[in-house]
Computed example of a mutant assay.
Amino acid sequence: MKIEVTRSGGVAGVHRTGSVEFAMRGARAPSDASWAALYRQARSECGLLGAGGGATDDAARAPSRVRDAFQWTLRFGRERIEVPDTDLSGALRELAERVLAEGQ
């Protein structure tokens, strides 16, 4: 699974991007298990990603924008969602911030 995160906006309007790639099953590195667990938790907790592999109607709508607030774009394989900073919470926020901090 490949996850790419872009955080844009803010007062300075700076873009930060990071990505990680990990195995969901089969032979995998020790860190893959923690990434896979966090991904699964974010997916089940937030309901932003549909079980059929596409974004749900709520995620497909254009996000509301707040002046000088961050805007997050997350790509999970072929799926793409945009989330305003005010709506990013729980495991999805943890996953997004971890990808920016530890990803390439």
Rank of each mutant, 00 (worst) to 15 (best):
E45C: 03
A37W: 05
P63N: 12
S44D: 01
D32P: 05
G77N: 02
Q41P: 01
P30C: 15
E21V: 00
G77F: 00
T73G: 00
Y39T: 03
G10Y: 10
T56S: 13
G54T: 11
A55K: 14
D58I: 07
G52Y: 05
Q71I: 13
G50S: 04
L38R: 07
R65G: 05
F22I: 00
A23E: 02
T56V: 15
D58P: 04
W35T: 04
R61V: 08
M24K: 11
G47T: 14
G18W: 03
S44G: 05
G26D: 06
C46L: 10
G50H: 12
S31K: 04
A51S: 10
A59D: 06
G13N: 07
A60V: 13
G18R: 03
T17C: 02
G9Q: 13
L49M: 15
R65N: 03
C46Q: 07
D58S: 07
A29P: 05
A42L: 07
A33W: 04
F22A: 01
F76N: 01
T17V: 03
G9P: 12
G50F: 07
G54F: 11
R78H: 01
A27M: 06
R43G: 00
Q41E: 04
E21K: 00
G9F: 11
Q71P: 14
S31A: 11
A51T: 08
L74P: 00
V20Q: 00
T17G: 00
E79C: 02
H15N: 08
S31H: 11
R40D: 02
G77E: 00
A37V: 10
R25W: 10
R75N: 07
S44T: 04
A12L: 06
S19M: 08
G10A: 06
A59N: 12
P30S: 11
A60S: 13
E21Y: 01
G52E: 07
G9R: 10
Q71S: 14
A33M: 06
A60K: 14
T56F: 14
A59E: 11
S19E: 08
W35C: 09
A27G: 05
L48Q: 14
A60D: 14
W72R: 05
A37T: 04
L48Y: 11
P30I: 08
G54P: 06
T56C: 12
G47K: 14
A33C: 08
G13A: 05
A69G: 15
A37S: 09
T73I: 03
R28H: 00
A51F: 01
A37N: 06
V11R: 04
H15L: 03
T17D: 02
R65P: 07
V66L: 13
R43Q: 00
V66Q: 15
C46N: 11
F76H: 05
E45Y: 03
L38G: 09
T73W: 10
P63V: 12
G53Q: 10
A59I: 15
A62K: 11
S8P: 04
S8Y: 02
G47S: 15
G54A: 09
M24Q: 13
G9Y: 10
R7D: 01
E45L: 06
Y39N: 08
H15Y: 05
A62F: 12
L49A: 09
R80G: 00
T56D: 14
